[in-house]
Design a protein around this nucleic acid. Structure first.
Length: 682
DNA sequence: TTACTAATTATTTTT
DNA sequence: TAATTAGTAA
């Protein structure tokens, strides 16, 4: 037990020891958050004697879950069972497997991903943009609104239509026993809400609950957590309000801000000692984030001592910026810095382009993190679709996806006809083709196509026979029967795609090896929840969006595109405080040096536009003369500004309020005093 | 059924 | 710019 505390500081130890009641651990960037959670879990199990099976630790990403699992297993020696430590969604999946029958559904449901969701929606309605409907449905589900609720609440005709699509979408999922990502949480909550006994039993089972990245939770997740700890209130959340950067995705920053209102008797612990960055970096990060009004208030304290000052790169345009960044990186590499200790961060992915060119010219190897994910690749989705059709004959979407892959001369027209006929008979495409007489098919499509379809089904049946249970040979039979590697033959990137397919096959075999008694169903559901992929440790520098960098650290960090319009990014739905938090996240990734770069103009969206240096330089105390802040207000009398609520107005005067500027603005005749950060300049 | 052209429109992303 | 989508011609 002494061992657990050996590596913890005072506040970390205090947080670990506070096992009872609601605990809020405000963990600043680089303050040893993971160490604290993992130690707390080990303490509960090893020192307090809580059975591991009575704890529950939830994260948002598989990656975080994996890391914590590894680190906690290293600390816990004699637990009979490992503690349940997984993502929110995985927890939902496990829970539904055991309890979905209480909703009158079978537990062999299939989890669909975002793509499937969109295809289903598109089929129901193609007038309104699919992504809009998809995000609205997600919003409704996360607010626990049924389609009827949504319909009643809708004022605009469009929204009534969306509510109707939502209703049909739900019907479709139900009929096909499908479950989407939101359902994994929403149905879990619904079950607990509707079954008091189940809720109490579940709460009793998980006596000690911990949540990572609590600032990223949404309203529904909070409600679920309240259910889960209804009998004991032993909930410990770890997070950082200053690193809340997913508001646009529904994360509710108030959950962490007002945690003590949701859970009575909260103990708060602040982890402010930073073990990552040199003091000048922290100074800049602290100065920036201090401009946010809505925050709990926390200051990072440097423990790693002095270091290099934060530097700025000023460039004419993106090309000059690329040259300068490449030169600076070359200098670091020449000095013996390891490439994977260098990262370039940006707010918008397109900004990577010009930098990539610069790095190529300088012959510096780089790796762009993000981009197309493994499981989103067309060739992988094809393989998954094959497996889906084999496990679930009613999956028309997957069927249509693979019907002409490799090319069998079955175009959209033929498939549409078949689909219609199948629907008229109230069955799926697969079953229809299987049971229909050949003559019946010939009446619909060309004879050749009818034969092809029949043969296709026969082949699928044959493969399915091999795959009753997921066996090692399955993928081999699949490949030999359908020659899936031929799909992309002749394309310029065929080789890469085939490599990916091989990797998928290997992944499958690996899964079968690790889960000998498994089924294809289980394999598919596991896949859908996996999107984290290869983090190849390479001998190259990293490039990624600021969002993607959260949780990571690098010796040397370059933040590019520090201009008004990029960071902060302005547009509808943008939130200046969240932009500032993004800046804060970016800055606090750096251990040794931080370089902030801005360009006077950029080629973007097909035209070149002039850009002003980001206000964040000022706010971080990085402008020449930034000590005499008065002179550096971005606003002056006569400027046109826009406010989220009041609209457009003209500045009548500028005054100071604390660290911020207060503007007297004339909004269409009504004069108001507004803090400068709440308006945007036009 | 495919293969081309015109038009449209732009954050961030996990499960 | 560049990527996706809708529409049209062959």
């Amino acid at each position: 037990m002494e061992k657990i505390f050996e590596r913890l500081n005072e506040s970390q130890s205090a947080a670990v020891k506070q096992t009872e009641g609601p605990v809020l651990i405000l963990a600043g960037a680089g303050s040893g958050k993971t160490t604290t959670i993992v130690s707390r879990l080990a303490y509960l199990i090893q020192a307090v004697g809580i059975p591991a099976s009575n704890t529950l630790t939830l994260t948002f990403t598989n990656k975080a879950a994996r890391e914590m699992k590894e680190r906690s297993m290293a600390m816990i020696q004699n637990a009979a069972y490992p503690p349940l430590l997984c993502t929110f969604h995985k927890f939902g999946l496990l829970f539904l497997k055991f309890n979905i029958h209480l909703l009158g559904r079978q537990n062999n449901f299939v989890v669909i991903d975002t793509d499937d969701k969109k295809r289903i929606i598109k089929k129901i309605n193609s007038d309104i943009p699919t992504p809009l409907i998809a995000s609205e449905i997600s919003r409704y589900k996360n607010s626990l609104m049924t389609s009827d609720d949504a319909y009643k609440q809708a004022e605009l005709f469009n929204y009534k239509q969306i509510a109707e699509v939502y209703g049909e979408y739900e019907k479709y999922l139900h009929e096909n026993n499908l479950v989407d990502f939101d359902d994994l949480i929403a149905l879990t909550y619904k079950l607990l809400e509707e079954n008091k006994e189940l809720a109490e039993a579940t709460s009793q089972k998980y006596q000690y609950i911990m949540i990572d990245e609590y600032q990223d939770t949404n309203e529904l997740q909070l409600k679920l957590l309240q259910k889960l700890c209804m009998t004991h209130n032993n909930i410990c959340v770890v997070g950082d309000d200053d690193q809340s950067i997913y508001g646009w995705r529904g994360a509710h920053i108030r959950n962490i801000m007002e945690f003590d209102e949701d859970f009575e008797g909260t103990n708060v612990f602040k982890l402010q000692e930073n073990y990552r960055s040199r003091s000048p970096i922290l100074k800049v990060a602290n100065a920036l984030i201090e401009h946010n009004r809505s925050r709990l208030g926390k200051e990072l304290i440097a423990t790693r001592g002095e270091g290099e000052e934060v530097s700025t790169l000023n460039s004419q345009d993106e090309n000059e910026e690329a040259r300068k960044v490449a030169a600076a990186i070359q200098k670091l590499l020449d000095a013996g810095v390891k490439a994977n200790e260098i990262a370039i961060l940006y707010r918008v992915n397109v900004l990577s382009r010009s930098i990539e060119e610069g790095l190529n010219r300088a012959r510096i190897a780089y790796k762009v993190v993000g981009g197309v994910r493994f499981y989103d690749r067309a060739e992988i989705k094809d393989l998954i679709s094959y497996i889906r059709v084999i496990t679930n004959h009613h999956d028309d979407f997957s069927f249509k996806r693979i019907a002409n892959k490799p090319k069998r001369g079955l175009g959209k027209a033929s498939l549409d006809k078949i689909e219609l006929a199948a629907h008229q008979k109230g069955t799926s495409i697969y079953e229809y083709i299987k049971t229909a007489e050949l003559e019946e098919l010939v009446a619909l499509v060309k004879k050749k196509n009818a034969n092809t379809l029949k043969e296709f089904i026969t082949n699928l049946e044959n493969v399915a026979a091999v795959a009753k249970n997921a066996t090692y040979e399955f993928v081999e039979v699949l490949e030999d029967t359908f020659h899936l590697k031929d799909i992309y033959a002749g394309m310029p990137d065929a080789q890469e795609r085939i490599l990916n397919m091989d990797e998928f096959y290997a992944l499958f075999r690996d899964f079968v090896k690790n889960h000998p008694e498994t089924s294809l169903d289980e394999f598919l559901n596991e896949l859908t929840l996996q999107s984290d992929q290869d983090e190849v440790e390479g001998d190259s520098i990293y490039m990624m969006s600021i969002h993607a960098s959260k949780g990571l650290e690098f010796e040397h960090v370059f933040v590019i595109g520090m201009e008004e319009g990029f960071l902060p990014l302005v547009g509808d739905g943008s939130d200046l405080e969240e932009e500032r938090r993004l800046g804060y996240v970016a800055f606090t990734r750096a251990k040794e040096t931080l370089t902030l770069s801005h360009a006077g103009s950029r080629f973007y969206k097909g035209r070149r536009s002039d850009l002003a240096k980001s206000r964040f330089f000022n706010e971080a105390g990085l402008c020449e003369g930034s000590l005499k802040v008065e002179k550096n207000t971005a606003y002056k009398k006569g400027d046109l500004v826009r406010h989220k609520i009041f609209g457009t107005g003209r500045v009548l005067g500028v005054s100071k309020s604390g660290r911020e500027f207060k503007l007297n603005i004339n909004f269409a005749g009504s004069k108001r005093e507004i803090l400068a950060s709440f308006v945007e300049k036009l």
